[in-house]
Design a protein around this nucleic acid. Structure first.
Length: 286
DNA sequence: GACCAGGACCATT
DNA sequence: AATGGTCATGGT
């Protein structure tokens, strides 16, 4: 009879639902009163109230740093928001509408693989592919009795041992060869994901972009969502449209220029600004 | 049925 | 340097 672990994290301005549905992570699901996922191989449920997040695990932890790191609960959101330009009504509107939206700090391989799968896919479809991959090839996680089975995201080593056909059977289409190639690079030690953390952001970006199927946008997603480079600014079709409409009178502007503008205009936490804009424009239209 | 999705890549201009 | 086609699959 396993005795699970429980941790109560005091938080201010932390909207778990917005964070989990904002297109930065694809493996978490609603369950019971909160959210269920697997972090560092450990099954976790999260439920939040006004000023705390309560985490439940299948096994006790003496050190919860793995979860605190994932949730980034120590980040003072007010400090982040204070770096935003004060005179920008569009960003201010997004912040007001998405109060409590956070950036997570994901495991690099899961994040990289997820965003390789993301290209020209809707978020619901990315979630479905990630789920299928986990069910078929992920390590089962120990869960508390009465809960649905849960799986870690498959390791690079596991995916590297698969065939392109097996990956295509998970409905990822032409992305299969990209994922397989990336998994083999990582599994063979030709790309050391732990090393990227310590590189300057430009070099880190270039390192990720050496992978087939990883361009500027996907690299920026991994830099921001897995490594926490605060100026990384993913420009996808939504952000490109929004920036064009808000700051360039609707003119079409190339992504590289948009990134330059964003870095100057939004400042040292441009990545956070990006996430607020992205989530806001995707959720406000009904 | 058309159109689009948290793109990247390659061949043409 | 800049456009255009192509790649799978499924939602809206």
């Amino acid at each position: 009879m396993p005795s699970g672990g429980e941790l109560c994290l005091p938080v201010r301005d932390y909207d778990l639902a917005a964070t989990m549905t904002s297109g930065q992570v694809f493996s978490w699901r609603r369950g019971g009163q909160g959210w269920v996922g697997v972090v560092s191989g450990r099954w976790v449920t999260l439920r939040s109230s006004a000023n705390e997040i309560v985490a439940t695990t299948a096994e006790p932890s003496s050190d919860w740093s793995w979860l605190k790191s994932f949730l980034q609960t120590e980040v003072d959101l007010a400090e982040v928001l204070a770096t935003f330009p004060a005179d920008d009504p569009h960003l201010r509107g997004a912040v007001a509408a998405c109060r409590g939206l956070r950036l997570l700090r994901q495991e690099p391989w899961e994040c990289l693989a997820s965003f390789i799968l993301s290209s020209t896919k809707q978020i619901v479809q990315i979630r479905q592919i990630v789920r299928t991959l986990g069910e078929r090839y992920g390590e089962p996680a120990l869960v508390l009795p009465g809960h649905e089975a849960a799986y870690a995201f498959p390791s690079a080593q596991r995916i590297a041992a698969l065939t392109e056909a097996e990956l295509r059977a998970c409905k990822m289409g032409f992305r299969a060869k990209y994922l397989l190639s990336a998994a083999r690079q990582v599994a063979a030690g030709k790309l050391v994901l732990e090393r990227i953390q310590h590189l300057p952001v430009g070099e880190a970006r270039a390192e990720l972009m050496r992978l087939a199927g990883v361009g500027e946008k996907i690299a920026d997603c991994v830099l921001l969502f897995a490594y926490g480079f605060p100026t990384a600014f993913p420009v996808d079709v939504w952000i490109a449209r929004a920036l064009s409409r808000f700051y360039f009178r609707g003119r079409r502007v190339r992504p590289e220029r948009l990134r330059g503008f964003a870095r100057r205009h939004f400042g040292p936490q441009a990545g956070y600004a990006q996430q607020y804009l992205f989530h806001h424009i995707r959720t406000q239209r009904g």
